[in-house]
């Protein structure tokens, strides 16, 4: 068996008076697509922050998180800085707030890009950065790169913003990409495009994906394995096809049923 890219063992997260995530264990292999499902407040996003070592100081982790061979829990900030970007990058839910409102989009892509080129010891002059940036913009299929690199976040559409955010994450060339509800803030058509784009990109580049969502249909079409969370604990995990078609846990069952009813309602059946 190959070495896991991410291995989470008995992870618990708690504030001074309250447990938020309890005894969570899962692994993600290199290049694998893994889904984390749960309702709001189930601890999905906290788990993803814990993986990148960015928990708020008030939340104390216990257990182990091993990312790319390095222990995250209790690691010093300096070591985490170098791990972030190299091993893990994140695409957030709301692209409008995840982009700096006062910085042109091109610059926002260029910053992590230059960091990566430096890290890899490649030339990181203006010309190189620009060339790589064009490639990235192509890769996320953004139109009109000339205008785009000079535009500010509020000047482009929500879908384009999320593509920029994906380009920024890819600029790091991470081994694991965390997508924290990357489609929730988008309309349905755009959602679909972003999902297709993410799927094809992680395949193409061989990046592992940790996809966080409450949308079963979206998760089902994207990932190979899923874990269902409720109130900070894992209720069920396994192959996406199994869990979503024949759920064993009653909570997962209600989620699946709700999704079915929603689909049926959309199609006009009762």
């Amino acid at each position: 068996m190959t070495q896991d890219l991410l291995s989470v063992q008995n992870l618990s997260l708690s504030t001074a008076d309250k447990g938020l995530v309890k005894n969570l264990s899962f692994t993600i292999a290199p290049g694998e697509r893994f889904g984390l499902i749960g309702e709001s407040g189930s601890g999905k996003s906290l788990t993803s922050l814990a993986v990148s070592g960015l928990l708020p100081p008030s939340i104390k982790p216990s257990g182990r998180i091993i990312l790319d061979g390095q222990e995250i829990v209790g690691a010093p900030g300096k070591q985490l800085d170098s791990l972030r970007g190299d091993a893990v990058a994140t695409v957030f839910q709301e692209p409008l707030t995840a982009l700096d409102p006062l910085m042109p989009l091109g610059k926002q892509i260029a910053l992590p890009l230059r960091r990566r080129l430096r890290r890899e010891g490649k030339p990181s002059g203006r010309a190189e950065v620009n060339r790589h940036m064009r490639d990235l913009i192509d890769q996320v299929r953004l139109p009109d790169p000339e205008r785009l690199v000079r535009a500010y976040p509020h000047e482009v559409s929500g879908g384009q913003r999320q593509r920029v955010a994906i380009a920024m994450a890819l600029a790091c060339r991470p081994k694991l990409l965390i997508a924290d509800e990357p489609t929730t803030a988008l309309d349905v058509t755009t959602q679909d495009q972003i999902i297709k784009l993410l799927t094809s990109l992680v395949d193409e580049l061989g990046i592992a994906l940790m996809f966080i969502s409450h949308d079963l249909a979206v998760v089902g079409q994207m990932v190979e394995r899923v874990m269902v969370m409720r109130n900070g604990a894992c209720v069920e995990s396994g192959l996406a096809a199994d869990v979503l078609t024949a759920p064993k846990d009653s909570y997962t069952q209600t989620l699946v049923d709700a999704a079915h009813r929603f689909d049926a309602a959309l199609e006009g059946r009762s």
């Binding site: 960015l54 990058a89 957030f92 707030t97 700096d100 006062l102 790091c172």
Partner: peptide, 25 residues
């Protein structure tokens, strides 16, 4: 703001966040 977290996850150090994101904003 989210974009500070975003910069953090992509591996920015604090000095570069101060220079590129905090001061301009």
């Amino acid at each position: 703001q989210d974009y500070i977290t975003a910069a953090r996850v992509s591996g920015s150090s604090w000095p570069s966040i101060v220079f590129w994101h905090i001061l301009p904003n």
